Simulated assay, not measured.
Amino acid sequence: MFSIFKSDPTKKLRKEYDAKLEQGMQAQRKGDIKSYAMLSAEAEKIWSEIEALEAKKAK
């Protein structure tokens, strides 16, 4: 009944994922490849969490 009030956890993770990719892109443009690699790794971790939640939701 009150499921319309529940927030979607993947929505928040997708925002974080997009923000990490944006930060990584900015770091790469500045020539900071080390930061770019770290931010890309964090983004990949977030993406794997999103996929796990979506797989759980699909079942």
Rank of each mutant, 00 (worst) to 15 (best):
A55M: 03
A41M: 08
Q23L: 08
D18C: 05
T10P: 09
K12D: 09
G31L: 00
E54N: 15
A37P: 05
E49C: 06
I50D: 07
E16C: 00
S7I: 09
A58M: 12
E42N: 05
K30P: 01
D8Q: 13
A27E: 01
M25H: 13
P9N: 10
M25C: 04
A43M: 03
F5A: 13
I50P: 00
P9A: 09
Q23I: 03
L53E: 08
E49N: 09
M25A: 11
Y36E: 07
D8V: 10
E54Y: 04
E22N: 10
L39S: 00
A43Y: 03
T10D: 13
A58I: 02
S7Q: 14
S48K: 10
T10I: 05
E44F: 08
K59M: 15
M1P: 06
S35P: 04
L39E: 01
A43Q: 05
A58L: 15
K15D: 04
G24V: 12
G31T: 03
S35E: 14
A41L: 04
Y36V: 07
E44A: 14
M1S: 12
L13Q: 10
K59W: 06
D32I: 15
K11L: 10
I33N: 07
E16L: 14
Q23V: 04
A55N: 01
R14L: 09
S48H: 11
Q26M: 02
Y17R: 03
E54V: 15
S40E: 09
I50K: 03
A58Y: 13
A41C: 05
A52E: 15
P9D: 11
K20A: 01
K34E: 10
G24T: 05
I50M: 03
A58Q: 06
F2V: 01
K57H: 06
T10G: 02
K57P: 09
I4V: 14
S3L: 02
S7N: 14
S40R: 05
